[in-house]
Design a binder for these strands. Structure first.
Length: 299
DNA sequence: ATGGTAGAGTTTCTA
């Protein structure tokens, strides 16, 4: 089975390119990020015409994650257990009197309404694999509330992922997508350019590495360990021709699924030409699920 | 020359 992940940066702007990729690469299951559309806007017809079923969650022109599969799609979940929402911080009026003590009992409505969960995670079982299409929050800036949200989001995902393994140590789970973390200095064209920015802080790198502590293996680096192997190039300043990229798209797998990985391909050619996404597909090839060997058949 | 790209709810936001 061929499993891939791709931040497409608008599925409507790139539907022809995405379907062409599916057919050319013979991908069975594609996790898609940044669809940038609501559910009713998703161009599902083009996928169905190519033989793929689609599950999607999208609330607006931002975020949006999907899974397209030609090996079945079942038990769809539009968020993981404990997935945090993002609450816009209250903006005090410019003439707020600082002398006044804060209200010890804020309006009940503010406490009763949980922050909205964004369309950043979609789970579905495809061909026997529990696939999660993930679009980790960007963080924007270290001092921005979105940065704390990013760390909380990664922590919550790790706890959920650990629970899945605790429930079933043999589970076939793939956590794939745009992680918005640069795990190593060799995953960025120039570490100095990111000093003081998000994606490279110790807290983000620890939050990313914690998935390994939870029992998952990041298989794209296992199979493609070369330094400066990028999956994203900014649209600006000729970043792609100058190969000023980032490695931020990854695939963590459970132990049972890791055993099935036979290879990984980063489809760098998809960054070329007019109408490319700023990310390229990351492809994980899986051997057929092992069948129990007859007793005593092998050492 | 303080920009530069792309997509979307385009009189501005997000990345």
């Amino acid at each position: 089975m061929r499993l891939a992940t791709w931040n497409v940066n608008s599925v409507r702007a790139r539907v022809d390119r995405v379907v062409a990729f599916l057919e050319r690469s013979q991908t069975d299951v594609l996790a898609i990020q940044e669809t940038k559309c609501r559910d009713e806007q998703f161009p599902v017809g083009a996928f169905e015409a190519a033989g793929y079923e689609v599950a999607h969650v999208g609330h607006s022109a931002w975020n949006g994650v999907a899974i397209a599969s030609r090996v079945g799609i079942a038990d769809v979940e539009a968020q993981f257990a404990g997935q945090p929402g993002f609450a816009k911080p209250a903006v005090p009026a410019a003439d707020d009197a600082p002398a006044e003590a804060p209200d010890p009992e804020p309006a009940a409505t503010l406490l009763d309404v949980p922050p909205p969960v964004e369309a950043r995670a979609l789970g579905a079982t495809c061909g026997g694999v529990r696939v999660w299409s993930l679009y980790v929050p960007h963080g924007r800036a270290v001092a921005d509330p979105h940065y704390a949200y990013k760390l909380a989001w990664l922590g919550a995902l790790r706890r959920a992922a650990a629970d899945w393994l605790a429930d079933d140590a043999a589970a076939q789970v793939a956590l794939v997508g745009d992680w918005n973390v640069i795990p190593l200095d060799t995953d960025v064209y120039d570490p100095a350019a990111f000093a003081g920015h998000t994606h490279v802080t110790p807290a983000e790198r620890e939050a990313f590495a914690a998935f390994a502590d939870a029992g998952y293996a990041e298989v794209t680096r296992e199979h493609l360990p070369a330094e400066h192997t990028y999956t994203y190039w900014d649209y600006q300043q000729l970043a792609f021709p100058r190969n000023k990229g980032l490695r931020i798209d990854f695939a963590y797998t459970s132990p049972a699924l890791r055993e099935r990985v036979t290879g990984v391909v980063i489809d760098r050619d998809e960054r070329k030409g007019k109408g490319a996404s700023d990310h390229v597909p990351v492809i994980v090839d899986l051997a057929d699920a092992a069948t129990p060997a007859p007793r005593g058949s092998r050492a």
